[in-house]
C-alpha cells in the first residue's frame, strides 16, 4: 500500500486532488475537521479507484495535536498535500483582529506547525514529497485581500526555504499557486472565464508537477505571466491602483 495524506480535505481542490491521486494508484488519508462528513466522498473514491481511503480528524488550529495526528497514521505517507485555506473577509479582518488572526493562523501558522513535523520525518527517511497550496495572492499585497495574501506570502516563503533545506535529503517540495478556481470559496464571485480553472484542472496540474519534480506551479499556467506583470508594476503606481 502507498498512502498520501491530504490535509484541508474538505476543499474542492483537495477533493479533486484526492480523486486524481487515487486514480493514479495511491491510497489516501483525508484529514480535516469534522472529517466524518466526508464518508460518502471517501466511498466515491473507493468505488472509482478501488483504493483505500481513510478519514483522520485534524484541527489545523490546534497545534499541540499535530504530532499526535501524524503519529496516529497507521502507515507513514509517501507524501503530504496541504490544501488548508481560509479566505476570510478582508474588511472584517481590518476591524476585528480575531478574524485577522484566524486568517493568519489557518493559512500560515497551522500549516507550518504541521509541515514541520512531517518534514522532519521525511528528512530522516530521506524520502517523500510535500505539496503546499499557496496562492497568487501571496505574490503581492493588494487592498482587497492583503491579510489573506500576506499569510499566503508567508507560506510561499516557508515552502521555498523548506525546499532548499530538504533538497539534500531528496525530499521534494512543490509550491502551488492557483489563480482563480471555481470552488465553494469563490462561489458568487464574477470570475473571468479564461483565467478561472476548474478544481479538476488544478488537481491534474498538481499531480503532473509533483510527479515531475517541479518547484513552483502556477495554475492555470497563464497566472505566471499575469503575476509577473503585477509584481513588476512600480510601487508608486501600484499604490494608486485598484486591482
Amino acid at each position: 500500500m502507498s498512502y498520501i495524506v491530504i490535509v484541508g480535505a474538505k476543499s474542492d481542490i483537495a477533493k479533486a486532488t484526492a480523486r486524481e491521486y487515487a486514480q493514479n494508484g495511491y491510497d489516501i488519508y483525508l484529514a480535516g475537521r469534522n472529517i466524518s462528513e466526508l464518508e460518502t466522498f471517501a466511498e466515491d473514491i473507493r468505488v472509482r479507484s478501488e483504493k483505500a481511503v481513510e478519514l483522520v480528524e485534524l484541527d489545523i488550529l490546534n497545534y499541540a495535536s499535530h504530532q499526535a495526528f501524524y503519529d496516529s497514521l497507521a502507515e507513514k505517507p509517501l507524501g503530504v498535500i496541504s490544501a488548508v485555506g481560509y479566505l476570510g473577509e478582508q474588511e472584517k479582518a481590518q476591524l476585528d483582529n480575531q478574524e485577522a488572526q484566524k486568517i493568519i493562523d489557518t493559512n500560515y501558522s497551522g500549516v507550518v506547525s504541521l509541515l514541520n513535523i512531517i518534514a522532519n520525518d521525511f528528512e530522516e527517511r530521506r524520502a517523500g514529497f510535500i505539496v503546499g497550496i499557496s496562492s497568487v495572492a501571496g505574490d503581492r499585497g493588494r487592498k482587497s485581500n492583503y491579510i489573506y495574501g500576506s499569510a499566503k506570502a508567508g507560506l510561499t516563503a516557508y515552502l521555498s526555504g523548506l525546499r532548499n533545506r530538504l533538497y539534500e535529503s531528496q525530499v521534494h517540495v512543490l509550491t502551488v499557486k492557483p489563480g482563480f478556481v471555481a470552488t465553494k470559496m469563490t462561489e458568487g464571485m464574477d470570475l473571468p472565464e479564461k483565467l478561472t480553472a476548474q478544481p479538476e484542472e488544478v488537481a491534474q496540474d498538481i499531480f503532473k508537477a509533483q510527479q515531475s519534480g517541479k518547484s513552483v506551479l502556477y495554475t492555470k499556467w497563464m497566472w505566471k505571466y499575469v503575476m509577473m506583470i503585477i509584481t513588476s508594476i512600480p510601487e508608486f503606481i501600484f499604490k494608486k491602483m485598484s486591482i
Binding site: T40, F41, E43, D44, V47, R48
Partner: peptide, 13 residues
C-alpha cells in the same frame, strides 16, 4: 458527481 457503490457480481453501478 459521487459514485455510490458498484456490485461486481451483477455489474450494477
Amino acid at each position: 458527481d459521487y459514485f455510490i457503490s458498484f456490485d461486481e457480481e451483477l455489474g450494477i453501478l
